[in-house]
Amino acid sequence: MRADTPAAASVLAWDLPTRLAKWLLAALVGLAFASKYYGDPAMVWHQWNGLAILVLVVFRLLWGVVGGSTARFAAFVRGPSALLGYVGGLLKGRPAHYLGHNPLGALVILGLLGLVAAQGLTGLFTTDDIIVYGPMTPVASDATMARASALHQQIYPFLLALIGLHVVANLAYSLFGRDNLVRAMITGRKPAAAYVDRAPATPGSVIAALTCLALAVAIVFGGIALAGGNPFP
């Protein structure tokens, strides 16, 4: 975006809490890989990392209900007919123009959130049977831990693949499509144009964002403590 772009030429697409949550989650998922392979042997860092990811995912779920208009699941998750229409347009090289997530991208967002959540949740019950014991292992049975530990490893390649798809698709849209999606997710703004969904986006309130964050922290750490686990690795 040029610095001298007049405000009227661009519209809000993503409010600040949505963007912060998105990039923080991306950074934390990256750090989770790093802390798995290069962290301390007891994976204390990796466990804190996982707890932070769970907090962000819970925040994003709450924000998907009370947050900015383009962050709300009810607004961006669309039915099969909208999806088929979009895919048809995409195959003809004329995809419908969305301010927020397009119907196909919405599925990837749900998949990413679901897989990251599953990875975080199974991680709580994961042990290497040596010295790594996740926050919920004190109250989990051997069978549960074995199952969760296996899933934690099995989900990983699917998560990597979906992240790869997500990155490639966004770069492709940004390079060959009508707008630079990556820049929009950084600046929050897109050029004013005719969009299928309502533009500009309505931002969520900062107070609501802080409340969601506090709630998310309470749900993750309080939930683990209430279930008898140890929320502080």
Binding site: P41, A42, V44, D129, I130, I131, V132
Partner: peptide
């Protein structure tokens, strides 16, 4: 091995 290592892991952490 596992039972003896578990508390030692706690010392490491």
């Amino acid at each position: 091995f596992g039972d003896l290592t578990k508390p030692v892991g706690g010392m490491l952490r």
